[in-house]
């Protein structure tokens, strides 16, 4: 490698002369900033508003029921059918939904990572067994499994978390497995093995750090999908159960009053959109996906439902 190759901005072109890279389009993270703002706004509201003295999602002011937003100074986002402050309800629902979603993603990523690493690093029969399990659950749509179990034992938020934990780990496991497989034969993983490291040691020090990074990336882009999924389940009554509020539940409750008080459904819907779109913008960068050039091969896109 010559010295010129090592100067990052002066990569040689085919003609042999170095042309400064300033000619390339600089990446404007405008979309990412917008996404981050959307995301932060919702998170701040959900976790910050409850800290304010005005926060009161429980008290019913029946005389003020179904007040529209902006009418009453004490209830800037209006009230629901029982006169409860909608802003407070929304914030609380945000805490509940986000809390559950983060819990689900954490559980799934840890579970998937463990299974994937074990499968990839140990290989052989264990690998076949675990990946066989993965294939089995791929066949059935999650919602039907949830419906079946909910019909049998009754719907509850724990059932939803459990079903999602039992099915969603597969995406993480596959990635963890392929990374582990790739790393397993690398020289820097063989070196400690030769020097007496146990499997645990090697995995912990050399494989887990690399895999974790991939899991994190996957998890961040997964959160949006899980929010949509759990909100749908909540809406159908298969997830969070009343009286605990969640975004999906609020929309479901608001549906009954869609004629008199459409804002009851619209507000939570907008909030969901802000979070999911914000996450999407921040983690996937629209532009890199949207222009497949003629020369490049088509990239695999992250489809939300593809891992089910």
């Amino acid at each position: 490698m010559t010295a010129i190759d090592q100067i990052p901005d002066l990569a040689p072109t085919a003609a042999g002369t170095a042309i400064p890279r300033a000619r390339r389009m600089p990446r404007i993270p405008a979309l990412q900033i917008i996404g981050a703002v959307m995301l932060v706004a919702v998170v701040l509201f959900s976790f910050g508003y409850p800290l304010l003295p005005a926060f009161d999602p429980y008290t019913q002011h029946l005389s003020l029921a179904l007040t529209a937003p902006g009418v009453d100074a004490h209830h800037l986002l209006g009230t629901d059918s029982l006169g409860r402050d909608e802003a407070s309800r929304l914030a609380l629902a945000g805490r509940v939904t986000l809390g559950i979603v983060v819990a689900i993603v954490v559980v799934n990523s840890l579970l998937g990572m463990s299974i994937g690493i074990v499968s990839g690093y140990l290989g052989g029969k264990i690998d076949n067994l675990l990946m066989g399990l993965a294939d089995v659950q791929l066949a059935m749509p999650v919602i039907l499994v949830l419906i079946a179990l909910a019909a049998a034992v009754g719907p509850s938020v724990w059932l939803m978390i459990g079903v999602l934990a039992a099915t969603y780990w597969v995406g993480y496991a596959r990635v963890a497995r392929s990374v582990s497989l790739g790393l397993r034969e690398r020289d820097f993983v063989l070196a400690p093995r030769i020097q007496g490291a146990s499997g645990f040691w090697t995995v912990r020090r050399h494989i887990v750090p690399n895999v974790s990074v991939q899991m994190l990336i996957l998890a961040v882009s997964d959160i949006g999908a899980v929010i949509l999924l759990t909100s749908s389940f909540d809406f159908l009554g298969l997830g969070v159960q009343a009286p605990m509020p969640s975004w999906g539940l609020l929309i479901s409750e608001g549906q009954k009053y869609v004629r008199q008080a459409p804002y009851l459904s619209i507000l939570p819907g907008i909030v969901i959109f802000l979070v999911v779109a914000g996450l999407h913008l921040v983690s996937q960068r629209f532009t890199s996906e949207s222009t497949p050039s003629r020369k490049r091969s088509p990239r695999t896109t992250q489809k939300k439902g593809a891992r089910r």
Partner: peptide, 25 residues
Amino acid sequence: RTTALGIGAVRQAIPDFFFGLLLVL
């Protein structure tokens, strides 16, 4: 292309049930 993909991506961030509700509205 950018417009179509953008519209599609926006729609993707809206849960189906909410979109349906908006249509009803």
